[in-house]
Simulated scan of single mutants.
Amino acid sequence: MNKYVFGILLVSVLFSCNGSKEKKIEKKTNRVSKVVAKDSLKKDEFVADEEFKNDFDILLPRSYRTYDNLNPVSSLTKKWIDLYEDNGEYFLGKADFEIEKSFDECSGDSLQYISSKNKTIIFIDYPELKVGKVKSLKINKDKIWPKEKIVYTFNGVTYTFRAEGKVLSEFKVATDDDKEEIFKNVANYKLYLKIGDGAEKLLLAEDSFQDTFVVLRFAGDIDGDGKLDFVFGANRNYEEQRVILFLSSKAENGEDLKKVSEIAVQFDC
């Protein structure tokens, strides 16, 4: 994921949080986002993020605060599945990790940190997944800006992403590999997906972002059904790490893809 440099913002965050980068978790998101009124929907369109409840949990390799003697890290076991990257290829394996304890001076909370032995994308509480190499696509463009369309082909089937939204501003930012790219502040964002000859569906929608944007982190066949699954980073503000998992094998009611799990971690003081 690209790392964006916002000088004034960074100074503000460092000052207010006293240098802390630790975060708290919202384990399950029950957030309603009325980005599209139901009476205005097209026939084959659905509303994203309506009172969503995880089919199963996911975790990220990072630190989590403890509240009321409870910490999300306590649910992670060796039976969980680790989706990880190794030399440009992706694998599913049993979770291999250590738990480290520390203290967050910013919030005054104790912390537990998941230290993974692998380059983990997400930990998945879905032991039924088959371990081994995952067939995946190389993501050449991880952001789909408004008015852009990107097409992937997997097992002879096309997956067409199309985005809508309002670009408020744009400017150059530095990337992790010391290059520059154009970053855009976007509002009223909608990301659509059309699979093969099927109907275009609304996959993800957000009213606004604070110096962040949606990033495609992984595209491949996680569940082994020959169809693409997706992992998106969808931070809504600069003090959040949010990841969403979509699986094809869990799709219902004639759909081709289903949002099955989401995790949102806030880091504020």
Rank of each mutant, 00 (worst) to 15 (best):
residue 76 L to M: 10
residue 155 N to F: 03
residue 62 R to S: 08
residue 225 D to Q: 01
residue 201 K to P: 02
residue 175 T to S: 13
residue 107 S to Q: 11
residue 258 K to M: 14
residue 245 L to I: 01
residue 108 G to Q: 03
residue 257 L to M: 07
residue 263 I to E: 00
residue 68 D to E: 12
residue 70 L to R: 10
residue 215 V to N: 12
residue 192 Y to K: 08
residue 4 Y to G: 05
residue 31 R to M: 10
residue 53 K to L: 04
residue 137 L to E: 08
residue 40 S to Q: 12
residue 34 K to C: 04
residue 77 T to V: 05
residue 255 E to A: 15
residue 124 I to W: 01
residue 45 E to A: 09
residue 43 K to Q: 06
residue 225 D to H: 01
residue 267 F to A: 07
residue 200 E to K: 09
residue 40 S to C: 05
residue 113 Y to W: 04
residue 202 L to E: 05
residue 25 I to T: 11
residue 256 D to L: 02
residue 28 K to H: 01
residue 211 D to N: 09
residue 137 L to P: 06
residue 172 K to W: 04
residue 110 S to A: 10
residue 151 V to Q: 02
residue 211 D to C: 06
residue 115 S to T: 06
residue 174 A to D: 14
residue 47 V to I: 15
residue 111 L to H: 06
residue 119 K to I: 12
residue 214 V to K: 02
residue 123 F to R: 04
residue 71 N to I: 14
residue 101 K to F: 03
residue 70 L to M: 08
residue 253 N to A: 14
residue 246 F to R: 02
residue 178 D to H: 09
residue 3 K to H: 13
residue 250 K to T: 02
residue 239 E to H: 03
residue 78 K to T: 15
residue 64 Y to E: 07
residue 155 N to G: 04
residue 253 N to R: 15
residue 127 P to G: 03
residue 82 D to R: 05
residue 19 G to I: 08
residue 141 K to H: 08
residue 208 S to I: 05
residue 50 E to S: 15
residue 138 K to C: 03
residue 268 D to N: 14
residue 23 K to R: 13
residue 129 L to K: 01
residue 156 G to S: 06
residue 106 C to D: 02
residue 26 E to L: 12
residue 210 Q to L: 11
residue 10 L to C: 05
residue 6 F to P: 09
residue 193 L to Q: 04
residue 79 K to H: 10
residue 114 I to C: 00
residue 235 N to P: 13
residue 64 Y to K: 09
residue 185 N to Y: 10
residue 18 N to M: 11
residue 241 Q to G: 02
residue 136 S to I: 07
residue 206 E to P: 00
residue 250 K to F: 05
residue 237 N to D: 15
